[in-house]
Design a protein around this nucleic acid. Structure first.
Lengths: 227, 227
DNA sequence: CGGATACTTGAACCTAGTCAAGGGCTGTGG
DNA sequence: CCACAGCCCTTGACTAGGTTCAAGTATCCG
């Protein structure tokens, strides 16, 4: 792992993230100054469940899986973090130890924020506090949505949802380019890779064709009926 | 529904909640002053998904189901809120509309906090901001835990988890009194009521006996093996 | 071109949901 | 005090959806 201060281009990427996008001026500068950039290999552990929490992160490049392990060693993804997303910011005010594991999926670039430092900034600067609250709120809403979706929707419905959310158009044909391996998409939707494959097969009669990471949708309207 | 200002005994209950427990003095007083108490019938809707969000709540008495509906009308609980718990505080900084439904399970007493008022308090008072962040963080952690648990554990494992968390002892026999109907417990664990019944049956050979809301555990150690 | 990795497909199994019927508790009214 | 109605919970039978294991195919990368 390679650590360094923030470069100009990384600064640009950070500005687009949920955490920093509402900030300006001095607040922005203070938070940026507290970050360190880490280059990481694929499948490197960022932190483990039960470890003492000392930092949270923002993904600049690549993907990070947040997951839990059962005692028999089975593994379930809880969230897949994409570039621009923040994770483990719940540890700022959420207890001493990480409650899940984080691992890079591929080579990834992360901005690391020290928890102690950010706690101090949050106390002093209400703009930063607001950014953290916005971030937490959005994650909570998304995660509650995930619970509901897991409990209500079948695999093909979840896949259709995912495609429709990323669909540029409302009607007619469209295509969606997956930004990562199907493996990650499966984890994101709470499915085994095989189940994802089968879900795509189920959607084929509805006009969904898959070639590698490129998904063609015959008719967006028709796909909406599946959900 | 019956609305009124906070009585002395309700004030005492509120002080024990996640939101207020870290506050004192002026911060506490300001937040308390902004609340209104509502007495509600069983199965009364507190708010609906898609409605404009204008308040969040704290449960003083009774239980509240947070749930989502599928388009075919099926229903999935996302969280069951108990006395002392706050819900929908994610709407303070989380978007304009409620993203789920809230309904009382039985007659319930709720403290209602106006979102606009609390937003102002949060901006002005960093203690209140910290309380909100703590609350959001804990909910996010709990909800992520829920996703992981849904994806990793079977029904009997989830039931065993629930019992063990509420178990007064580490070893030997114990008993747990359910604070509500099994119906609610089923929703909390993401199960149909029938599945909860069957889960209890599965645990019977492991020394778990059920009579009404009273659950007897023969040996806590043995039950831990199930998980 | 070769090897590794990711993806797909098939088959057997298993968990949980659904529908339907029966048991048990509670509260009400005769 | 007993009978009955209503509700909640349990149980059974069936079904659908997903997991697991295993084998085969495609794809990527050296």
């Amino acid at each position: 792992m390679n650590k360094h201060a923030i470069t100009e281009s990384e600064r640009g990427q950070l500005l687009k993230t949920t955490l920093l996008t509402g900030l300006q001026g001095r607040s922005l500068q203070r938070l940026l100054d507290s970050a360190i950039v880490e280059e990481r290999e694929g499948r490197s552990s960022v932190f483990r469940q039960g470890e003492n929490a000392d930092a949270f992160y923002c993904v600049l490049n690549g993907y990070v899986r947040l997951f839990r392990l059962s005692r028999e060693g089975r593994h379930a993804d809880v969230r897949i973090c994409q570039p621009g997303e923040v994770f483990a910011e719940c540890m700022i005010y959420g207890g001493d130890d990480y409650t899940f594991n984080a691992q890079t999926a591929d080579t990834a670039t992360l901005a690391r924020f020290d928890l102690g430092t950010v706690r101090r900034l949050v106390e002093e600067d209400s703009n930063i506090a607001r950014s953290v609250m916005t971030c937490l709120s959005q994650h909570l809403i998304d995660t509650m949505h995930c619970v509901g979706s897991d409990r209500l929707n079948t695999a093909p419905q979840r896949v259709a949802d995912y495609l429709l959310e990323r669909c540029p158009t409302d009607r007619g044909p469209a295509s969606v380019q997956l930004p990562f391996q199907k493996n990650l998409l499966a984890g994101m939707l709470g499915l085994a890779p095989e189940a994802l494959s089968r879900a795509f097969s189920t959607l084929r009669p509805r006009g969904v064709t898959v070639r590698g990471r490129m998904i063609q949708i015959g008719d967006v309207q028709a796909l909406r009926e599946v959900v």
